[in-house]
Structure formats: structure tokens, C-alpha cells
Amino acid sequence: MMIAGDVRGWLLPQIVMAVASAAALALALWRQQPGGRGGSGGPAAAAPYALLLLLLWCLRAFERAAGAGDAAAQGRLRLAVWLLSSALTVTFAARVAPLMHGAAAVLVWAMSAATICGGFYMLDLFPLHRRLDRIN
């Protein structure tokens, strides 16, 4: 677990993730064919990277709120993390499912729905004290 004041423990991974995301976004925009699906490809190519960066920011804020003992902020950030991870899952499924045939596409969407429902259960419905009791 990271300590809130330890800058070296979280700064380097964030810089690496930002540079990698920027490089992947630049490559996606460069490879985007004019007149492709949905017209302009800029927002469609940038959306997953923006969602990922927002998710990482929310996870860091959740760590800080946990260190400060702010339960209200943790609840809000838990919801934000679930929504962002669900949006990333749907974005992935929407890009992969059209490449699959019939039953495989249905399986991609079914696995996405199971992941979203399982994430909601683990983040919001499964009591935190039961998780902590199993760890200790």
C-alpha cells in the first residue's frame, strides 16, 4: 500500500502511463483512415485513453481518501471507478464484437456484462468488513 506522502512510489508509473497513452493515441490517430466508421476518428480513438487516465486518477484519489479516512469520498470514488471501468469494458466489447462471428460476438458481450455485474457486486454490494476479515 502506498503512503500518501511517498512521491517516488506513484510518480514514475503515472509518467510512464501518460507517455504510453499519448504514444498509443498518436499511433491510433495516425493510422485512422479518413472517412472510416462514424466519420471523424479522433474522439473514437481518444475515448479509451481518456477513460483509462480518468480511471487511474480516480484510483489514486481513492487511495488518498482511504489514507485520510474519508468514507464519503471513498464511496463517491468507488462509484466513479465502477462507472469508468464499465465504460472501458463496453468500449472494448464494442470494438471487438464486430470482428467476431455470431456466437463469439455474443460471448464477448456476455463476458462484458458479467464483468460489469461482478465489479458492481464486489465494489458496492459485498461488505467491506467481510473482505478485511478474510485478509487478516
Rank of each mutant, 00 (worst) to 15 (best):
Q14C: 01
G75Y: 04
A47R: 15
A46T: 06
A105R: 05
L52Y: 04
L25E: 06
Y49K: 14
W30E: 15
Q14T: 00
A71Q: 12
V106K: 09
D124F: 02
R130N: 06
T89D: 02
A28I: 02
R134T: 07
F120P: 02
S112V: 10
L79A: 12
A26T: 11
G102D: 12
L59G: 10
V108Q: 09
Y121N: 01
P127N: 07
G75R: 10
H129K: 12
H101T: 11
Y49H: 15
R64N: 02
G9F: 00
L54S: 10
W57K: 08
R130W: 14
A24I: 01
P98N: 01
L55C: 03
W10G: 00
A66V: 03
M1E: 04
G118W: 05
V7N: 00
V19Q: 13
L52E: 07
A93P: 12
A23S: 13
G9Q: 08
Q74I: 12
A104I: 10
A26G: 12
Q32H: 08
M100H: 00
G67P: 09
W30K: 11
M1A: 11
A26Y: 07
A4P: 05
A66R: 04
G42A: 15
L132H: 12
F92D: 09
A28L: 14
G75W: 01
L84Q: 02
P127E: 12
A4Q: 02
R31V: 15
L53Y: 05
V19F: 15
A72L: 14
A50P: 08
N136H: 13
F92K: 09
L125T: 03
Q33N: 08
A66F: 00
L27G: 01
A46V: 04
A61E: 14
S40T: 04
I116M: 02
G9I: 00
L99P: 02
G42C: 09
P13T: 01
F62A: 07
V108A: 13
F120N: 05
S112I: 10
I135Y: 10
V7P: 00
A72I: 04
V96C: 05
G38C: 06
T89K: 03
L55W: 04
P127H: 07
L125I: 07
M2L: 09
V106N: 08
A103T: 11
T115I: 06
L125N: 01
I3R: 03
L56V: 08
A73E: 07
A93F: 09
